[in-house]
Every structure is written in structure tokens, then in C-alpha cells.
């Protein structure tokens, strides 16, 4: 068998495996239902300032910037950084996290816009998957 034909077959197989992996990752993300939590940014303050989420689960965090200025949601412990545009809702995903306290802040107004995400190991009384609700 010529070398070119052999290498093209191998390359075809590699492409097929990569495509399956990407498809699996994308469909997993699309199908997975995440619990939703809301945070509001108003007058450079986060509401609620403390929020409890379940441990070892990925959650969807919706941040509603009701201010007239841009803010940046930033957290070193959560590895998250998201620009929040005025009068817009932004979505980020957090976790899975081990129990503990994870601080976040608004990078443009760090003295006022501060908050804490508490990851609890205990079972939380949470709404059904997909429903939007605030905890705390």
C-alpha cells in the first residue's frame, strides 16, 4: 500500500475521532440542565451579596447589570472574568466546586461591588432544574 494512501486513512480516522469528541462535548453541554441563580448589580452593589450553591455541581449564574455603566465580574478563586454591559443580562457557569467560600467583585468598582459565593456540602432546598430562582 502506498505511504500517501496509508497516511490519508490514518488522518481520516484521527479527524473522525476528534469530530466525535467535539460533538460529544458540545451535546453534553447543550443537554445538561443547570440550576440557575440570579445576581443583580445596582448602584455598583451586588444583590444578594452572599449566595449559597450546592457543592460538586455546575450552576448557571445570571448577572443582571441594572446600572448605566460597564462593570466586570471578577473572581480569582472561581477563575471567572465577565464584562457586564449596562442594562444587559450576562450568563456564566460556575463549578463543580468543593465546599468553601469564593469571593467575587466588580473590577471597576472593587470597593463597593463585592460578594461571596458559599459552596455548601449539605443538601440545599433548591428549585427544580431549569427554574430561575435566588438562593438567600
Amino acid at each position: 500500500m502506498p505511504n500517501n494512501l496509508k497516511s490519508s486513512k490514518v488522518w481520516h480516522k484521527v479527524k473522525l475521532v476528534i469530530s466525535y469528541m467535539l460533538l460529544a462535548m458540545a451535546s453534553y453541554s447543550a443537554l445538561a440542565q443547570r440550576q440557575e441563580f440570579n445576581i443583580i448589580l445596582k448602584s455598583h452593589l451586588f444583590y444578594p451579596t452572599e449566595m449559597t450553591i450546592p457543592s460538586n455541581k455546575k450552576i448557571k449564574l445570571i448577572i443582571d447589570n441594572q446600572d448605566d455603566s460597564v462593570e466586570e465580574f471578577d473572581s480569582f478563586s472561581l477563575n471567572r472574568e465577565k464584562v457586564l454591559f449596562p442594562k444587559q443580562k450576562s450568563v456564566i457557569y460556575i463549578g463543580p466546586l468543593s465546599p468553601g467560600r469564593y469571593a467575587f467583585f466588580g473590577e471597576y468598582h472593587p470597593s463597593s461591588a463585592r460578594g461571596m459565593i458559599i459552596v455548601s456540602g449539605a443538601e440545599l432546598d433548591l428549585p427544580a432544574d431549569g427554574e430561575t430562582d435566588n438562593v438567600n
Binding site: 455546575k58 457557569y93 463543580p96 466546586l97
Partner: peptide, 14 residues
């Protein structure tokens, strides 16, 4: 990390 943030790539525990 940006792709993990919007759940395009699935992130795992630290």
C-alpha cells in the same frame, strides 16, 4: 477559561 466560563468546554473540579 473563557470557553469553560460559558460551558462550551466542560470544566472539572479544581
Amino acid at each position: 477559561q473563557l470557553l469553560e466560563q460559558v460551558d462550551i468546554i466542560s470544566s472539572t473540579a479544581h
